[in-house]
Design a protein around this nucleic acid. Sequence first.
RNA 1: CGGGGUGUAGCUCAGUAUGGUUAGAGUACUUGGUUUGGGACCAAGGGGCCGAAGGUUCGAGUCCUUUCACCCCGACCA
Length: 435
Amino acid sequence: MRRSRAFIPTTKESPSDATLLSHQFLIRGGFINSQGAGLYNFMPLGKIVLEKIRAIVKDELDRAGCMEVQLSFVTPMGLWERSGRADAMGKEMLCIKDRHQNDFVLSPTNEEAMVELVKNRVTSYKDLPLNLYQINTKFRDEARPRYGLLRGREFLMKDGYSFHSSKEDMVREFDLMEETYKKIFTRLGLDFRVVEADSGAIGGEGSKEFHVLANSGEDTIVVCQSCAYGANIETIFESEDEISALNEKSYEELQLKKLDKKCSCGGELSFKKGIEVGHIFQLGTRYSQALEANFSDENGRAKPFEMATFGIGVSRLVAAIIEQNNDENGCIWTKESAPYMVNILVSNVKDEAQVALGEELYEKLKASHVEVIIDDRKDRFGFKMKDAELIGFPYTVIIGKELQNGLVQIYDRKTADNTSVNADEIGAKMLELLK
RNA sequence: CGGGGUGUAGCUCAGUAUGGUUAGAGUACUUGGUUUGGGACCAAGGGGCCGAAGGUUCGAGUCCUUUCACCCCGACCA
């Protein structure tokens, strides 16, 4: 991509309503813009990041044997009445009427629709297990949307549902999804913890949350210093007052608070703030029973499916990555999430030698399938550099003054190191670096 | 859903207490010139139904009524 032709509207000033750093940088960097309370447009850079995350989620799920589907976003109200959730979900469901005055709901989640899809199509134990997922828009009419993409009303979520003939098999799949989720978040380059959680309104027995560690996180979790154990504080403290008191504390205050309990491994426990980006539940037969979704077992008897459900906040991840990876200058994308891996910064576009080298490198990297953008705008060095840091490309190749000495620089966004390289070796050097 | 606040140029905001020339600044944008390694400088331009509707008045960005939108604190929450 040529920066001079790209739609990447960056700004120096931050909109007054953005409080979180991820929100400010995503708007200033031209990734997203606000369309209304809890509603966001994804501009080209935002869309690229979103699709990269989506692709990683899909890749790992497909490897684990899941199949992708796409359910209708608009669902008939009757579906929610049959499961008894029309009242439970309450005002979070955005209800609309069609021209015949029939009631519909914009999907806040899809347990019901997925059960209806599978019911009477999967009828034998021989067809089980089955794990279906979709990556689709959700709408929850939150009482108070905030924090940009972290708590929108409309958002992109991966929701998966598995069907089993026995509880044991369902638990096996639950464990497989835990491992799959770990692979997804690891690939995205995130520092995260898997924690024991309450199952909340969705119901069921076993439940685990995946939290991206970030000081600005809304949830408070307890993690062990020595082993992998982690838990949502809801599972550790009984009293509601104690839980909300902890949630209100800032990250700094939490670090001072000591926990007298020890982990079962003997390690020290400490508090962290986290952003919930994934949640997996063992549902059991709650929905299959309510919706009379049965299969025939080995003896020909009808039994309700054992089910589990698995969610990942895909659009929330866009913001979570930046909450965890930023500095005062802007975004620092991880390698798997970056909108472009390499930004070629031609310092002075009136200098023919700089332009020639920039173009040559651009073509070479493109030919090697590197995601590359060339900043060929007429602006000055400082302007382009600030822009590159705000957007957060992992590498910027600076072609400028030093070219007369036969040198260019590779700027590493994460470490802020500037490495000088011989100009005639830069192509090979970049390909080496990106291996 | 309670409490508080804000709507004026693409963005950040003055102007509203006390109604009165043609509604302002910075930034962004256009053109010309000078610059060219950390968000440059000079000059000239374009850009506004002052959130919307109604009212008071000779006259409303400013006063009154209604309404919509957005933000913050709380309650709630995948």
